[in-house]
């Protein structure tokens, strides 16, 4: 399944700022609770984890269960003391890994 991640990170911040980060990824989050027309359970296929790293260190992560809505949305904070790169990673039940990065300039 094609999944397109979107992230919003401020382009600039001052050292010590706590910034707001928003992420959204397209994914149907098949819960494993539904049945098809023939009564067979549709197998679960969800994004089961999300991680946000800054310059290689984990800032925020989430274990995700089937009760998280389709097109999973995560909003959280990060404290930035230096310029660098945020790396975002989503892991699919089928083993696919979706990644994206954003830079921030800290003065």
């Amino acid at each position: 399944m094609a999944s397109r991640p979107r992230v919003r990170v401020p382009k600039t911040a001052s050292a010590g700022d706590v910034i707001d980060i928003k992420t959204l990824i397209s994914h149907q989050m098949e819960s494993g609770q539904r049945k098809d027309a023939d009564g067979n359970t549709i197998p679960r296929q969800i994004i089961n984890s999300f991680t946000c790293e800054f310059n290689g260190q984990v800032v925020f992560a989430c274990d995700i269960q089937p009760a998280v809505s389709a097109n999973p949305y995560m909003e959280f904070k990060a404290k930035v003391n230096e310029s660098g790169t945020f790396k975002f990673t989503w892991v699919d039940d089928d083993g696919s890994v979706y990644e994206t990065e954003e830079q921030i300039e800290v003065s």
Binding site: R6, R8, K22, L24, S26, A70, N71, Y73
Partner: peptide, 8 residues
């Protein structure tokens, strides 16, 4: 427009 899933 970021929170809106329709933008995907």
């Amino acid at each position: 427009s970021f929170a809106n899933p329709g933008m995907l």
